[in-house]
Design a protein around this nucleic acid. Structure first.
Lengths: 133, 133
DNA sequence: CTGACTGCAAACGTTTTGCACGGTA
DNA sequence: TACCGTGCAAAACGTTTGCAGTCAG
């Protein structure tokens, strides 16, 4: 069991049952859409409002506890902020897997040939995953 | 002057002044948001409707004449479909530059270590461009 | 001439906001 | 206790749809 309370406090967010549950779902699912998160939250808080989900996700985005992942041809999903990584997105089952790919060489090339200082990279590879092929 | 008429016909789209203008703006700007496209179009067609923009962009997406580019922390932009490429996105001036980066090695690694068959890649590098630094 | 495109208005789904109440620190 | 978070309802926003008139082929 992860200590979500401290994680929230470290990001200057008050600890509430709803927030703990949101962080818990993000941790368990890895990547989740607003809609799917709401469906899961309703099971724990039968009168929770979508507005609460939005307000909290937005606060978590601002405090960098959470990051948005833009998915080609699909809705965005959200994940707990972790070390820079890429995504394998299955177009069949919609599952998203994290993967570590070293992009330093590419960043260096871009710095020298384009004089462009990279601060954030977003790489997603869409295709068919092991299970679906 | 590019022959936009043929480009439209090749994608089974009827040729209208509005469509010619949309393709022209996409060509000139490289990447453009719906909102910005509408602002430009209004200058040429004072009674054009946003619905016309949406309908045409959607048709152009379906016929693969146009592609959507999802931008981290910003609205999507649209571009004429061209050979696979990546994007340098300046967080200062919001300019987007196309760049060719060979991702075959990465795709091969993913195929072998994750058994994941990549069909589409999306790589964007956000940072500070030459002009803004 | 026929079907497709345009522009307008209405509808729709998603996200945000305002407010009264309740809970955290 | 004081402020912040929650839930509800309403509003705002972006996008889509239906329709009547017009245009491309």
């Amino acid at each position: 069991m992860i200590n979500y309370t401290d994680i929230l406090r470290e990001h200057n967010l008050k600890v509430t049952p709803q927030r703990l549950a949101i962080v818990n779902e993000l941790y368990l699912k890895g990547h989740i859409s607003i809609e799917a998160l709401y469906e899961l939250m309703i099971k724990k808080f039968d009168s929770i409002s979508l507005a609460t989900i939005y307000k909290n996700i937005n606060l978590m985005l601002e405090s960098a506890l959470v990051q948005e992942v833009k998915v080609p041809n699909a809705k965005s999903v959200y994940e707990l902020t972790k070390a820079s990584h890429s995504h394998l997105i299955c177009t069949e089952c919609s599952n998203i897997e994290d993967i570590t790919i070293d992009l330093k060489t590419i960043q260096n090339n871009v710095l020298h040939t384009n004089e462009f200082k990279v601060s954030f990279t977003s790489l997603s590879l869409s295709g068919i995953c092991k299970k679906c092929s």
